Simulated assay, not measured.
Amino acid sequence: MAYTRETQKLIYWLFASYANFRIGADPDAKLNEYDLYIAKKELKRLYIKASGYKADSKSLETYLTVLADNTDAETFKILSKAYIKSMQDFAINNDDFSLCLSLLSQEKANKFVDFLFDFMIEHNIPIRKEIAELYDETQKNKYIFSLLLHKKCCVCGKPITGPHHIDRVGTQGYKNDTGLDKRLSPLCPYHHAEIETGNYTNEEFKEKYPSFDYMLCDEKQIEILKDVYPHHFQAFEEGKNGI
């Protein structure tokens, strides 16, 4: 099933943000077609490398084989999938792939969007405000986890030293904390202190800073975050703390 035009629009907004970053322009600046083309090529090439996907080097020949060998009632469905795969594999072999709505599934488009957001956050690339808000609304947990992973504040984007615990860890600190029953928020030291010393409720802090948010991590996510924050989640043991 083809992915949505809204997701396609989001992808091209992210392309534009990266293109403007490359030339030192504001995220909302107007682009020429060449700069946008180069940005698209670079990000697609990086995604292909990061995904580890190995394209069929003889994709069109494979399609012709399927065409010749399948004549049952499912032929159309089989051939459609084979055709799409052959077209994409042909492009991937040349460090590219199509973003045409009919040639990319929603699942694959979402994975590409996740990669683009992680790349932008990791490399401190400014993006248009409405892009972050859209992603935050539609895929909040992925966005917050990415900020936690890359140690970026959800309010200002500055480095964080440790996640803010929405739910108190208690007098024993992190010794009894598995991380699995405590909601986490990526806040820099300044905003971390502000929410705690200002006696804000979560709702009040979000009203002041709309990008503020938090999440409850699963076991796999805590396993990853424990390497990022070695002094946190001391009670977590892989494979023993699932809830």
Score class of each variant (00 low, 15 high):
Asp213Ala: 14
Met215Val: 10
Lys226Val: 03
Cys156Arg: 09
Tyr174Gly: 12
Ile224Leu: 07
Val169Met: 04
His192Lys: 06
Asp177Trp: 08
Val169Tyr: 07
Lys129Ile: 00
Leu147Val: 00
Gln234Met: 14
Lys151Cys: 12
Glu203Asn: 10
Leu180Gln: 04
Lys220Gln: 01
Met215Tyr: 01
Gly173Met: 09
Gln172Lys: 15
Arg128Met: 12
His191Asp: 09
Leu134Gln: 10
Glu130Trp: 03
His231Asn: 15
Val228Arg: 08
Gln139Glu: 13
Pro186Arg: 01
Tyr200Gly: 06
Ile166Cys: 11
Ser185Glu: 13
Cys217Tyr: 00
Gly162Trp: 10
Tyr143Lys: 07
His232Pro: 01
Gly170Val: 07
Lys220Trp: 00
Glu237Thr: 09
Ile160Leu: 11
Pro189Cys: 12
Cys156Phe: 03
Asp213Val: 04
Leu148Arg: 00
His191Gln: 10
Lys226Glu: 06
Gln172Tyr: 15
Cys153Tyr: 01
Lys175Trp: 12
Asp167Met: 10
His232Trp: 08
Gly173Pro: 11
Pro186Phe: 10
Ala132Ser: 14
Thr178Asn: 07
Tyr214Gly: 01
Ile166Ser: 02
Thr178Lys: 03
Tyr174His: 14
Thr197Tyr: 14
Asp136Ile: 08
Glu204Ile: 03
Tyr209Gln: 02
Ile160Tyr: 02
Cys156Tyr: 02
Tyr190Asp: 15
Glu130Cys: 04
Ile127Met: 05
Asp167Gln: 13
Thr197Cys: 09
His150Phe: 13
Asp177Lys: 12
Gly170Phe: 06
Pro163Leu: 02
Cys153Trp: 01
Met215Gly: 03
Lys208Asn: 05
Tyr209Glu: 01
Ala132Lys: 09
Pro230Asn: 08
His191Glu: 07
Leu184Lys: 02
Gln172Ile: 13
Ile224Lys: 00
His165Arg: 08
Leu180Arg: 01
Tyr229Thr: 05
Asp213Cys: 06
Tyr214Lys: 03
Arg168Leu: 12
His150Gly: 06
Ile131Ala: 05
Lys140Val: 05
Arg128Asp: 08
Lys140Asp: 05
Leu225His: 01
Asn199Lys: 14
His164Val: 04
Lys182Met: 09
Ile144Thr: 03
Lys226Ser: 15
Gly157Ser: 02
Asp213Asn: 15
His191Thr: 05
Lys226Tyr: 10
Tyr200Trp: 14
Tyr200Leu: 03
Gln234Pro: 11
Phe236Asn: 11
Asp177Val: 09
